[in-house]
Amino acid sequence: MNIFRLAGDMTHLLSIIVLLLKIYATKSCSGVSRKTQELYAIVFLARYLDLFTDFISVYNSFMKVVFIASSLAIVWCMRVHPMVRRSYDKELDTFRHYFLIAACFLLALVLHEKFTFQEVFWAFSIYLEAVAILPQLVLLQRSGNVDNLTGQYVFFLGAYRGFYILNWIYRYLTEPRFTRWIACVSGVVQTALYADFFYYYFISWKNNSKLKLPA
C-alpha cells in the first residue's frame, strides 16, 4: 500500500458517501444517472469475484464489501424506494449502456492477462469502469444546472482513478517487474473522460458560480 493508492481509495469512498448523503438527505436522485450506478454495481461484482477465494488483507476485503454493498444499495434506492425513484430523470438518462457492457465483455474476451473465468471478468470490470461514467456525464450535460452534491460526487469519482495513476507510476518505479498494463491504460482513459468535467468544475469553483456543462 502507498499513499497514492490510499488517497485514491479514500477519495473513492468519499464519492460514495457524498452520493449516499445526497440521496438520503434530499430523498432525491435527480441529476444522478441510474445507468452509471448499475454499471458500477456490475464493475464491483465482476472485479471482486475473488472476495471469498483470495484474502489480501482485512482492509482489502472490507473495502470490497463496502463497494459492492453501497453500489447495490444505491441501485436499489433508485429502482425501488418510492420517494427516491420518483425523482429519477428517466427521460434524460437514455445512454445505451448495454452496448458498453457488451463491448467491454468482448474486449475482455480478447484482451486479458490470463484466459480464466476470474481474469476475464476482472479485465471486463476494468474496461467497464473506464466508460461507466459516460451515462452520468451525458445526463449532467442534459440536465443543465448540477446540484453541488452531484457535482462533488462526480469530481471525487474522477479524482480517485487519477490518484491510482500516481500509484501505478510509484509502483512501477519502486517494484521490480510491476506491470499492470490493462489497469493503467484503462485508468488513463477513464481519467481523461473526466477532463472537460474537471475543467468546468474548476471554472465554477474559481468563479464561485453554479456548475454548468455545455450541452
Partner: peptide, 10 residues
C-alpha cells in the same frame, strides 16, 4: 513471461 501478480488493488 507475465509473472502472476496478486490482485492487491481495489
Amino acid at each position: 513471461e507475465v509473472v502472476e501478480q496478486p490482485k492487491d488493488e481495489l
